[in-house]
């Protein structure tokens, strides 16, 4: 059981594992968001490129 429970209050110190996992989650989330930005950028280029050939 990897879930931890402990009393709330000031001065809770995260274990090394909790800190490491949180960093990993944050990194993965940042990577996903950056990937999405890139994806939409490329999609927009492709869509605009396809539209460029259509005469007005």
């Amino acid at each position: 059981m990897a879930e931890h429970t402990r009393p709330t209050g000031d001065g809770i110190r995260l274990t090394d594992l909790e800190v490491r996992r949180r960093s990993q989650r944050n990194f993965a989330l940042a990577l996903s968001l950056a990937g999405l930005v890139g994806l939409f950028y490329v999609m927009t280029l492709v869509k605009l490129g396809a539209g460029a050939g259509i005469p007005h």
Binding site: T5, T8, L14, E18, F27, A28
Partner: peptide, 20 residues
């Protein structure tokens, strides 16, 4: 991921990207 519970304890996630 970090949730205060009604019973006064706090749940701190240890889930890694692999779990998701």
């Amino acid at each position: 991921t970090d949730v205060s519970r009604a019973d006064g304890t706090i749940h701190i996630s240890t889930a890694g990207p692999g779990d998701f």
